[in-house]
Design a protein around this nucleic acid. Sequence first.
DNA 1: GAGCCTCGAGTTCC
DNA 2: CTCGAGGCTC
Length: 758
Amino acid sequence: MAPKDPEATPVEALSRDEAATELQRLAQAIAWADAAYHRDDAPEISDADYDALKRRNARIEARFPDLKRPDSPSERVGAPPTEGFAKVVHSVRMLSLANAFDDEEITEFDARIRRYLGLAADAPLAYTAEPKIDGLSLSLRYEAGGLVQAATRGDGTEGEDVTRNVRTIGEIPERLEGGPDLLEVRGEVYMAHADFEALNARQEAAGQKRFANPRNAAAGSLRQLDPSVTAGRPLRFFAYGWGALSAPLAETQMGAIERLSALGFPTNPLTALCDGPGEMLARYREVERRRAALGYDIDGVVYKVNDLALQERLGFRSTTPRWAIAHKFPAELAWTQLEAIDIQVGRTGALSPVARLVPVTVGGVVVSNATLHNEDYIAGRDSQGNPIRDGKDIRVGDWVQVYRAGDVIPKLADVDLSRRPEGATAYVFPTSCPECGSDAIREEGDSVRRCTGGLICPAQAIEKLKHFVSRAAFDIEGLGAKQVEQFYLLGWIREPADIFTLAARDAAGEKALVAPQEVLAGLHDEERGEARERLADALGLEGFDREEVARTFERRSRTPLSEQLGWGEKSVRNLFDAIEERREIPIERMIFALGIRHVGETAAQLLARHYGRWEAFLAAMDAATDQAGPAWDDLLSIDGVGAVLARSLVTSVTQDAERASIDRLAGELTVLEAEQPDTEGSPVAGKTVVFTGKLEKMTRAEAKARAESLGARVSGSVSAKTDLLVAGPGAGSKAKKATELGVEIIDEDDWLKLIGAA
DNA sequence: GAGCCTCGAGTTCC
DNA sequence: CTCGAGGCTC
């Protein structure tokens, strides 16, 4: 059990008996945290919390030396679970693959590539096909033939340095002969079935936890802090790709794989060349047929365009290469019973139903929750009103079939009406918010029902704050989702601006922004049991008693954070330092952090680039309030901004309460001007370019992607703001308009010459 | 107006 | 990771 947080009595005030009791409690709590960290590779409490426990233990021991226990945590040897793995930024992003689940999607994949490349349906186009190993991706960096770094995939941009562990894997060469000077090899670490069974037998004999499946075993083994543990684990490796290179490996994917094999890397023996969708699908069946006998887990077949020059032309979408796709095997299914349907309220007020299930193992993992999407889904209809699951609705008590979409997200596939319990009634979707009681309404044509409470809804307020501190927004170290939620419940932070005044209020001994009566007022009716529980929990109380809650609420408001359990002086200082660091914030993060519907990372980036300065952005929003006029048109002229986004943005930013909150926040900050894309030496940076007519050396999509990578804005129509028109043969009205407006016109060859210089 | 292609939002489990 | 929907292209 996790240690609760009984309001910490100052060490000085502890009686002897209390001290002895607490030392025992601390010893247990620390041992529990250690075990959770080492055994499960999943710390249950934060490093800061852990440090605070240890420090309090040490202080009590210092005051009562004779009470020191034989199992005192301060005597424990071994590395404290502070340092994890160093972060590694990948020089070339490790992307994921687009997925396909049926044959048709593979035909479409081929057609899409041909279209993009401008190839006829019958032109030759070869693909490689290889089994998709179910393990963990790894990037191995070799310099001058020697392995210098191994990193996990992480989020694709930044992974963890696992070099010391990887050096213990026999199948990964330490040195290469005759490779390029710089070579990053990418592949999959996995554990074979036989090795997995043997490992689990050993784990069990040693009284340790069995691993749920080979992939978890491989992941757990690779992420050992002690490389000697990894050395004892039977990890294996298949190379399938590469990142940074000082010289090309080959001209084709197949050639590159053969080269990696010649350099000493294991490559998958089932890798084959296919000349089109027909052969690809035949290969898929073949691999599927041999799946059970392979001796290791695979979850599909990956196809890649064989010609590397074509791969380069195809390039990437935002998170996946265009030249590859993973054809997944059908997901495993399992039947279980639906215990309850809960409603969660998101940042935008969306009411999302979640299925609480009798736990069931699906694909090696125990699943107890699954998404139910929205009210139509429960009723057995899709957003167009067409029946899904043959129109069967879902009721509490039903037997339902579960699968893990993409091997991750649990979903329901079917309902067994023959086993429906007698008296089961159709689920009635709430029409008021379960968190704040406000009306929950569904807009015309929308599939989700939303709480109309806005910021008075605690769920929305908390989710908005979580979004605010999230990685792509303010990313404040030491202030994660958990802390934000707790600070909100304790009344210390109600809106983003409050984060930046917290340190001062802490020093002044008055953190709460609301009176306890006010907090309690919202908890009157009996239905709000959950909210009461959460508040009691945040206060560290076992039960809910109004007077005790109010008392504790005030005491915690007055007690400096550094004296509260779970926090120590150092962690508090780190938190406040991290907050101070974010008083300077890039404008794109600021815009994203506001959490406006339809404005995600990408849209925020576009807006930041367009307006440059924060004041200019706000002024433009004000000028566009009436949704007409030059400011409104200017907003809509941004490529990627349409009417829906614009309306959502302008109404949010100019709405009084919201705006006041934004201004309070901005008052605490220095918002940094947008950085233009890194296009040093690009002749077209910041220019607005329009393509028209037929392009002969590249497709329109390629031309657009290339121009944007050089910092140009590509627009669809010629206007006074257009700097350059690239006109191929057959250009018509656009060329005419450009001439009228005096916009420079060049042909495709001139364009290539122009950007070739970059 | 139809058909992509992306992005945004919501979600689970480790 | 997926679904829904916004926005762009044809």
